[in-house]
């Protein structure tokens, strides 16, 4: 079958258990929401193809178990990621504090140039909010990453967040391959359909 995309980007969702990583992914890939909490026990992924500047970009988004006891195993999956969403819950102080630990995990296990973004999820729950938007913004500035508040429930900013992250990855790629004819070339994609092995992203750059 002919390839239906120009690039494959591998993204990862990390953050404490219960912050809504799976819900964010389901909102983005299925435009749906279910408030029943089902803990992710493992590493799952979904795909969605988006159009960025005329390029078909297939996002393969990996959703990870947030539970502490799986930490050593889940960090092994960081290596192949080209972009990482760090998610906390604006109604849960601890999940916000832990973002620093998650960043350390990324530094220790992911590629050095991985694109990152911090998401403060559940921003629809204004009455139980304990982490202000400003604090989220400050933390993101401190680590020089982008920041956005999202709601998987209402859908607010979910799409925008993924598109922004994908765009950052693409921009970085374009800067690295300035001679590459972005109009037609698919030569720097080496991915087989259904590729899910831990290694590699899609891009050989």
């Amino acid at each position: 079958m002919a390839k239906t995309y120009d690039f494959l980007f591998k993204l990862l969702l990390i953050g404490d258990s219960g912050v809504g990583k799976t819900c964010i992914l389901v909102r983005f890939s299925e435009d749906a929401f279910n408030s029943t909490f089902i803990s992710t026990i493992g590493i799952d992924f979904k795909i969605r193809t988006v159009d960025i500047e005329g390029k078909k970009i297939k996002l393969q988004i990996w959703d990870t178990a947030g539970q502490e006891r799986f930490r050593t195993i889940t960090t092994a999956y960081y290596r192949g990621a080209m972009g990482i969403m760090l998610v906390y819950d604006v109604t849960n102080e601890k999940s916000f504090d832990n973002i620093r630990n998650w960043i350390r995990n990324i530094e220790e296990n992911a590629a050095a140039d991985v694109e990152k973004m911090i998401l403060g999820n559940k921003c629809d729950l204004e009455e139980s909010r304990v982490v202000s938007r400003e604090r989220g913004q400050l933390l993101a500035e401190e680590h020089q990453v982008k920041f956005m508040e999202t709601s998987a429930k209402s859908g607010q900013n979910v799409e925008t967040a993924f598109l922004n992250l994908a765009k950052d990855i693409k921009n970085k790629m374009d800067r690295r391959n300035p001679g590459d004819d972005m109009g037609t070339s698919q030569s720097n994609v080496h991915v087989t359909a259904g590729d899910s092995s831990g290694s590699g992203g899609g891009c050989a750059c």
């Binding site: 026990i41 493992g42 590493i43 799952d44 992924f45 178990a65 006891r69 799986f70 899910s196």
Partner: peptide
């Protein structure tokens, strides 16, 4: 021990 059960072409499941 935590076992990693892999479904080829799909997800990994952790078994404790």
């Amino acid at each position: 021990d935590i076992l990693v059960l892999n479904l080829e072409g799909g997800k990994d499941i952790f078994i404790s």
